[in-house]
């Protein structure tokens, strides 16, 4: 991630006092704290950046380095080294691109949050300055922290969630085999306890939250455990009645169409809908709406017969 202007982030100018920084941090942290913004990834990211800014600016030593080197932070140690060499040898000019960033070392104080932060959301600056493990160190107050909660999204077809099935997920490089209960809904989130990040300083493991993105790959529409489908029937079956075959999730069923069925008539097939979540033996209903197909390209004889019918009705 690119360089972040911590002052701008905390809405401060460079002359801000420690009290100003604390106040600005508190204000923005309250606004963006992940606990106060459930399911808001943007707020999580903002909170993380605010935390990071506070870690640096609230520490006078770190702030000094940040103020001095700004976006060239990664060369700070190397720069200092080069300056010393230059002073002793009285020679070479410093070349900015010629040194690798080694970081300043030091330990992190302040706050820690056990929410779901991806590794790459910390700025490079923070990473280099405090080392790769900075985010995992926990707070300087020596608290036990529950591990990070992980969030994952799983895309499944509607037909996949008609029955409970097992699936292996890879989360942060770890394979997790889980049972996906039948009837899970689009957008629904389930919690897999203890499959989040490891706890800090003996704290318990975090949880894994999986949000399902269900893609409807069927002709049915779904509302909770009920399914809806539109079925075309011909005019003559609608008028005279008859038998049709309807496809359901559990196979084909024969259905009697009543005589004089009107367009838009709905028929409920009990128990032929979707399974209820975590109640595999209970099913919703399939609601069928009849679309009556009008005959086209009538032959002269058919027209004649329709006219006869018309006369009979008038």
């Amino acid at each position: 991630m690119a360089f972040i202007d911590y002052y701008r982030l905390l809405e401060l100018d460079k002359s801000a006092s420690q009290a100003d920084i604390k106040k600005a941090y508190r204000k923005l942290a309250r606004k963006n704290h992940p606990d106060l913004n459930p399911n808001d990834k943007e707020a999580q990211l903002r909170f993380q950046q605010i935390n990071e800014a506070n870690e640096v600016l609230s520490d006078p030593e770190k702030r000094k380095k940040y103020d001095q080197y700004g976006k060239d932070w990664q060369h700070a140690d190397a720069y200092e080294e080069a300056k010393k060499q230059q002073q002793t040898s009285g020679g070479r000019a410093y070349s900015q691109g010629g040194y690798g960033g080694t970081g300043f070392g030091g330990s992190q104080g302040g706050h820690s949050y056990s929410g779901n932060f991806d590794d790459d959301t910390f700025s490079d600056f923070f990473e280099e300055m405090f080392g790769g493990n900075a985010r995992a160190q926990g707070s300087g107050r020596g608290r036990h922290f529950r591990g990070q909660d992980f969030n994952a999204e799983l895309q499944l077809n509607l037909s996949d969630v008609y029955t409970s099935h097992k699936q292996t997920l890879t989360v942060n490089g770890k394979n997790i085999r889980l049972t996906i209960p039948a009837g899970v809904e689009n957008g629904q989130t389930i919690k897999i306890k203890g499959h989040g990040g490891p706890g800090v300083q003996g704290g318990p493991k975090g949880d894994l939250f999986i949000t399902f993105n269900i893609v409807n790959n069927t002709k049915f529409k779904r509302e909770k455990e009920n399914l809806f489908a539109a079925i075309d029937i011909d005019l003559y079956t609608a008028i005279l009645g008859g038998e049709i075959t309807v496809e359901t999730f559990s196979g084909k069923v024969k259905l009697n169409v009543k005589a004089e069925t009107q367009p838009g008539t709905k028929v409920k097939l009990k128990g032929k809908g979707f399974p209820k979540y975590k109640k595999d033996d209970q099913f919703g209903d399939l609601i069928i709406t009849y679309n009556i197909q009008m005959p086209t390209n009538l032959s002269p004889r058919e027209k004649e017969l329709f006219k006869e019918l018309q006369k009979l009705r008038s």
Binding site: P38, G187, Q188, R222, K224
Partner: peptide, 13 residues
């Protein structure tokens, strides 16, 4: 949020 999710799913109908 739950209601919103349900309504979005219904809207799909």
């Amino acid at each position: 949020q739950k209601q919103n999710r349900r309504l979005k799913n219904r809207l799909g109908l």
